[in-house]
């Protein structure tokens, strides 16, 4: 069961949203429960701290209380890192980037778009439920890099190629649609990667699954995002052998 919390300072709005959520729970028959609908952020915090389960939160940005919806969300995140936060906001207060960056908000609902509210709430609820049901072992298949106090996680499946950057002490990680320059080393990253990755040279590691084509004469590997990488004669032999072996395994 996934608990739902709702916080809005306007009484009419609070009632309307509660009703919408209740209706969705009944009609969709989802395993959720509206645990609390309150005007007071403190009572919400008190209640959620007692529970150890991740929950779905709908928070109004402007609470007219001692804290804003954003402050409340930051506080919630400290106790429920896996929870799902959705902001209810006016056009004026909307700041998708801040919501996402600060508390990893899942989504936001714009008050002015009256006709869309119900659909959006339903969408958020179903999505949260789906994510909630997902196994948590996804985290193990990611690599983690620390820059100062921040830890950046990238899923191994997303990585196509890692190479040392033009800048000293930095590497560039290529995913399907982005290139990330980050302070780290090929050695440190290779240590975290699984057997799907192959080191072509001192400065380059590739994801074998994302290999598109090999030019044996010129010793160039083409990745499926169009990226190229050269490989030495010796490494080429090892790679070929590894590719053959994995083919055998598949058969």
């Amino acid at each position: 069961m996934l608990p739902i919390y709702l916080c809005d300072d306007q009484k009419e709005h609070l009632q309307r949203l509660s009703k919408i959520i209740q209706n969705i729970i009944t009609f969709e028959g989802v395993d959720m429960e509206l645990v609390l609908a309150s005007k007071d952020p403190d009572s919400l915090l008190e209640k959620m701290k007692k529970s150890s389960k991740p929950a779905l939160y709908f928070l109004d940005i402007d609470l007219k209380a001692n804290m804003s919806g954003l402050d409340l969300a930051v506080e919630i995140r400290r106790f429920d890192p896996r929870g799902f936060i959705v902001f209810i906001t006016t056009h004026d207060e909307m700041a998708p980037l801040t919501f996402q960056y600060k508390v990893e908000a899942m989504d936001y609902i714009v008050k002015e778009k009256v006709e869309e509210i119900q659909g959006k709430i339903k969408e958020c609820m179903l999505y949260a439920l789906k994510q909630y049901a997902l196994p948590s072992n996804m985290v193990h298949r990611a690599i983690a890099m620390q820059v100062e106090d921040r830890i950046v996680m990238i899923s191994q499946d997303d990585i196509i190629l890692v190479e040392s950057s033009l800048q000293i002490h930095k590497v560039t990680i290529y995913t399907k649609d982005s290139a990330i320059d980050i302070t780290s080393s090929i050695k440190a990253i290779k240590a975290q990667l699984d057997e799907n990755f192959f080191q072509c040279s001192k400065s380059c590691v590739i994801n074998i699954k994302r290999l598109a084509q090999i030019d044996k004469k010129k010793r160039i590997l083409f990745m499926d995002n169009g990226k190229e990488c050269t490989i030495s004669v010796r490494q080429m032999k090892i790679l070929e052998k590894q590719l053959m072996d994995s083919d055998m395994k598949l058969k």
């Binding site: 820059v147 002490h169 982005s178 990330i180 320059d181």
Partner: peptide, 9 residues
């Protein structure tokens, strides 16, 4: 060293 730069499309 304290900067992460991502270019994306």
């Amino acid at each position: 060293k304290n900067v992460i730069h991502t270019t994306g499309y």
